[in-house]
Amino acid sequence: MAHIFEGIADRRSVYALGKNIPVSDDELVEFIRRTTELVPDAFNMKSQRVVVALGDKQDALWDAVYDAFGGKVAREKIDGFKAAHGTVLFFYDQDVIDTMQKNVPAYAQNFPVWAQQSNGMLQFSVWTGLRSLGIGANLQHYNPIIDDAVRQLLDVPSSYVLVAQMPFGSIEAQPDPKVAEDIDARVIVRR
C-alpha cells in the first residue's frame, strides 16, 4: 500500500516545465492510451476523450489560448505552459451522454455527473502516472473561453466538451513543499 501513497504524494502541480521528458513520445502516448482504457466510467459508457498536443501543436495551442483571451492573461504565465513538452486535453463526448440518456432514461440526469466523475479519475490517473514516469504536470481550466480555438486548431469534433488542460514536461524546478493540514477536518469517521 505504501507504493500507492508514494505515487499520490509525488503528484504535484509543477509549473516550471521543460521540453526534455525522460520517455519517448510513443511511450508517453501509449501510457495515456492505456490509462484512458483502464479508468472506469459509469455503465461502461466510455465517455472520455483525450487529445495530446505535441511539437508545433503544443506551441500553437498556448498561443491560441493567449489569443482567445485577447491579452487579458499574463503572457509569461501562458509561455510557462507553452514551454512544456506537451499538453493533455481532457474532454467528454456529449453524443455518448445523449445516447445513454435516451437508452436509460431512469438515470438520464446522472450521466453528465458520472461523465465528469470519470473525467476527474482520468485526469488524476494520468497526472499521477506522468509523475511516476519522471514527468511534471499541472492542471488548467481555460475552457470554455478557448473551446472554439481548441476545436479548430486540433480538429476536435463538436460533440467533445473540453474539461481541462494538463501541460506536462521535464521538471525544471520542484514545487514548494505542501503545507500540512488537519485531515480530520475533512475525513470524519462514525462507528
Rank of each mutant, 00 (worst) to 15 (best):
E27N: 09
Y160E: 02
D95N: 15
A173F: 06
Q174K: 14
M45S: 15
P22K: 12
A16Q: 10
D182N: 13
L162D: 02
N44E: 08
A108D: 08
T99F: 08
G86L: 01
Y92W: 05
V29Y: 10
R75K: 15
D26I: 07
V39Q: 10
P144C: 04
A108I: 05
Q152F: 01
Q174A: 14
I4Y: 11
D63V: 04
D95E: 14
E181F: 03
I21W: 10
V73W: 06
Q94T: 15
A180S: 11
V150M: 03
I4T: 08
S170D: 03
Y92T: 04
Q94V: 13
V14L: 05
E172M: 14
A106K: 10
I78A: 09
V161S: 12
Q58W: 03
Q101R: 15
K102E: 09
M100D: 06
A9P: 00
F5T: 10
G129F: 09
A42P: 03
Y142K: 09
F90Y: 07
E181H: 13
R33P: 05
Y66F: 13
E30Y: 09
T128G: 08
A164H: 06
T36P: 01
Q48E: 08
A106F: 08
G86K: 03
L130G: 05
S158H: 13
P105F: 15
A42N: 05
K82P: 03
H141Y: 14
F124G: 08
D63R: 12
V52Y: 13
R33F: 09
L154M: 06
Q94C: 11
K19M: 07
V51E: 07
I135K: 06
S158F: 05
I4Q: 11
T99V: 03
G18C: 07
L162W: 01
H85M: 01
G55Y: 10
V104P: 00
L139Y: 03
S132D: 07
V161R: 15
H3E: 12
G129T: 11
Y160D: 06
D182G: 00
L139R: 11
Y15L: 07
P157N: 12
F81T: 03
V73T: 12
H141V: 09
E76M: 11
N119V: 01
A149M: 08
Q174H: 12
A42E: 04
I183L: 04
R186W: 13
A74T: 08
G86D: 03
K102V: 04
K57G: 05
L38G: 08
R190E: 14
D147E: 08
R49V: 02
G7K: 14
D93Q: 09
N20I: 04
N103A: 13
V104D: 15
V23G: 10
H3S: 14
N44M: 09
S13D: 13
V179K: 12
Q101Y: 15
K77N: 11
R12D: 07
F43P: 00
D155L: 05
D98I: 01
V126P: 05
P167G: 00
A64Y: 08
D79V: 05
V51Y: 13
L122C: 13
V88R: 07
D59K: 15
Y160M: 04
G134W: 14
D176T: 06
D93H: 10
I32V: 11
T36S: 05
V88A: 10
V88H: 06
G134S: 15
K46M: 09
S47M: 09
